[in-house]
């Protein structure tokens, strides 16, 4: 049982959120920005997205135009940031990771996403397949802002949002789970918001 703080009542939302806000989160209607360093500004002409093997071999690669020419999906999902905010019913446009991995044979169990600026994050392969993850380039009907990860970011809404790597440039297929940027700095290896897996040991 948690310690009750004298006089704290809190401000419950009047609307029923039908169990959509995970423990320790609060709902916001803003779209806060979090990132560890400056926003990269890679020109689209130099941009590409790569699927690589663990050894770094390039298995597939798309230019910006090629990625945009792939079938795209529009999805409306709830997102949950480890800094406590959750935002409901966010609408994104992007290419499903299933589309990007189609035709690639692999025994990998994990992927590491990498980004402009050096950011990385690790995920089980099964968490980015079967309709669970996208490379998103549109938000709310507009091109994705650079501060929110544009031109494209990974979108994995069922995990804390640091897993949805901004400025994503590729996925590396991995045999083992290799801690990424925040995962090496104290944040949870998996990051399930419903189990409140924020930090090491949670």
């Amino acid at each position: 049982m948690s310690f009750v703080t004298r006089g704290f009542r809190g401000r419950r939302r009047e609307t029923d959120e039908s169990g959509r806000v995970p423990p320790g989160q609060y709902r916001t209607d803003d779209f806060p920005v979090l990132s560890a360093g400056p926003t990269p500004h890679t020109p689209l002409a130099e941009w590409s997205f790569t699927i690589a093997s663990e050894s770094g071999e390039e298995l597939a690669r798309w230019s910006w135009e090629e990625l945009r020419a792939l079938p795209s999906e529009t999805v409306t999902v709830d997102i949950h940031c480890v800094t406590k905010w959750s935002k409901l019913d966010t609408t994104w446009e992007g290419a499903s990771v299933d589309t990007l991995l189609a035709g690639i044979e692999t025994d990998a169990a994990y992927v590491t996403a990498w980004s402009d600026g050096g950011y990385t994050t690790n995920l089980p392969l099964e968490d980015v397949t079967d309709g669970k993850a996208w490379v998103a380039f549109g938000y709310d009907g507009e091109p994705l802002d650079p501060e929110h990860g544009g031109p494209a970011r990974l979108l994995v809404p069922h995990l804390y949002f640091w897993k949805s790597a901004k400025w994503v440039r590729g996925l590396r297929l991995m045999d083992d789970d290799d801690p990424g940027f925040w995962e090496s700095l104290g944040y949870h290896l998996y990051g399930d918001p419903w189990r409140e897996q924020r930090y090491w040991g949670d």
């Binding site: 948690s2 310690f3 009750v4 704290f8 009542r9 809190g10 989160q25 609060y26």
Partner: peptide, 10 residues
Amino acid sequence: LTAQDGYQAQ
């Protein structure tokens, strides 16, 4: 913070 009725905010 935890309220008397168990409601919490972080």
